Deep mutational scan, measured.
Amino acid sequence: KLPPGWEKRMSRSSGRVYYFNHITNASQWERPSGNSSSG
């Protein structure tokens, strides 16, 4: 399961899957890690 705020999306241009955070408006190709504590 993804960390809070993150969701899986697909890029229309490349067709690749990326991850988008609707809370911080951040996007990245790598899967966000939800196990590590923020610090």
Rank of each mutant, 00 (worst) to 15 (best):
K1R: 13
K1F: 11
K1P: 14
L2D: 14
L2A: 02
L2G: 02
L2Q: 02
L2I: 05
L2M: 05
P3N: 02
P3F: 01
P3W: 03
P4Q: 07
P4E: 09
P4L: 08
G5E: 06
G5H: 07
W6S: 00
W6D: 01
W6A: 00
W6T: 00
W6F: 01
W6V: 01
W6K: 01
E7D: 04
E7W: 03
E7Y: 06
K8P: 07
K8A: 12
K8D: 02
R9L: 05
R9Q: 04
R9I: 06
R9A: 04
R9G: 03
M10G: 04
M10W: 15
S11L: 12
S11N: 08
S11P: 03
S11E: 14
S11A: 09
S11T: 10
R12Q: 15
R12N: 14
R12T: 15
R12W: 12
S13I: 13
S13M: 08
S13L: 11
S13C: 15
S13V: 15
S14W: 06
S14D: 10
S14L: 08
G15F: 04
G15T: 03
G15K: 08
G15W: 03
G15Q: 07
G15R: 07
G15P: 02
R16D: 03
R16H: 06
R16E: 05
R16S: 04
V17R: 02
V17G: 02
V17S: 06
V17A: 07
V17Y: 12
Y18E: 02
Y18I: 02
Y19N: 00
Y19V: 00
Y19D: 00
Y19Q: 00
Y19W: 06
F20A: 01
N21M: 03
N21I: 02
N21V: 02
N21E: 02
N21A: 01
N21G: 01
H22K: 11
H22A: 09
I23Q: 08
T24K: 02
T24D: 05
T24P: 01
T24A: 03
N25R: 14
N25K: 15
N25S: 08
N25T: 06
N25E: 07
N25F: 11
N25P: 00
N25H: 14
N25Y: 09
A26K: 14
A26F: 09
A26M: 14
S27Q: 08
Q28V: 05
Q28P: 00
Q28C: 07
Q28K: 04
W29I: 07
W29L: 06
W29M: 06
E30Q: 09
E30L: 07
E30R: 09
E30M: 07
R31Y: 11
R31P: 12
R31M: 10
R31G: 03
R31L: 09
R31T: 07
R31N: 08
P32K: 02
P32L: 02
P32Q: 00
P32C: 00
S33R: 10
G34Q: 12
N35P: 13
N35H: 11
N35K: 09
N35E: 13
S36Y: 08
S37F: 10
S37W: 10
S37P: 12
S38D: 12
S38M: 11
S38P: 12
S38W: 10
G39Y: 09
G39E: 11
G39F: 10
G39S: 11
